[in-house]
Amino acid sequence: MSLFADSPLLLPNAELRFHPNWLEAATAERWLAELLAQTPWQQPQVTIHGRNHPVPRLLAWYGDAEASYRYSGLLHRPLPWTPLLAEIRRRVEGECGQPLNGVLLNYYRDGQDSMGWHSDDEAELGPNPLVASLSLGGSRRFDLRRTGQTRIEHSLELGHGSLLVMAGATQHHWQHQVAKTRKACAPRLNLTFRLIWSPA
């Protein structure tokens, strides 16, 4: 069944599809264990108001050789695809119906690891970016708000084996975050696949 026929989220000026059980449990468990063991995690520093701060999560960027990606002032040069990530990419591409040449892995070790409000609207992602977000491990809340606003308009629980696809004009009109939480939560691995049109 096509993901895009499965579960649309009806937000204005957005094209969102969510499949909470996209991946079978045994495969999700295998992928999570292998990726956590294989990935050379990094925790880069970002400069905010003249001070350096570590990014509040661990990350790694993989992709085709030409798929460099710049965001938050950091240039990420891709690691080569591993056999497992190439397998995952093929499955996600089949669901999305388009090629994807890079993936950002974010590892949220506990509730204090987070991702602040942002849109995936960097120039190298093209005019209407498609971002496919696969979640493995512990569930975390994913919030959406209109660009320029402060009120959360919609939230999703991104659980083990779920896939969220953001396409069309979504990144022009909406921002998203994974906020810190004091609730106990298991470590979470998030893979966000995208297509780099013009490398950074």
Rank of each mutant, 00 (worst) to 15 (best):
T150E: 14
Q45T: 10
A25W: 05
P54Y: 03
T150C: 00
D64T: 09
P129Q: 03
N13V: 00
S162P: 14
P44E: 05
W22S: 14
A169E: 10
E15K: 08
S139N: 12
K180P: 04
L79S: 14
P99T: 12
P44F: 03
E66V: 08
V165L: 08
E153L: 07
V103M: 00
E34M: 04
L9W: 12
F142D: 03
N128A: 10
H76C: 06
P44D: 02
L191N: 11
W81R: 13
T170E: 02
G102Q: 09
S135T: 11
N128G: 01
L195W: 03
L158T: 11
G97M: 14
Q175S: 06
S114G: 02
P8C: 09
C96V: 15
L35T: 04
L11M: 10
P127S: 08
H49A: 10
A60C: 15
P127M: 07
G102L: 08
M115I: 08
H118Y: 12
K180W: 05
Q38M: 01
T147P: 00
L164G: 04
A132P: 13
E157V: 10
T150F: 00
L195A: 08
P40D: 07
E95K: 14
A169L: 13
W174C: 01
G73N: 13
W41V: 04
A25F: 07
W81H: 12
A5S: 14
W61Q: 03
L32H: 14
A200H: 11
H172M: 04
R89M: 05
I48V: 10
G97V: 09
R91W: 10
Y69M: 06
G50Q: 02
W22R: 14
K183L: 14
P127I: 07
P44T: 08
F4S: 10
V46T: 09
E153I: 00
P83G: 12
G50Y: 13
S198N: 15
G126L: 01
L130T: 15
L10E: 14
A65W: 00
V92W: 13
N101R: 03
L11P: 11
G102H: 09
A200R: 11
W117C: 05
W174N: 01
Y62V: 11
H19Y: 04
G137S: 08
G97D: 13
W117N: 01
L164Y: 02
E29H: 13
S119A: 13
P78L: 02
A200S: 10
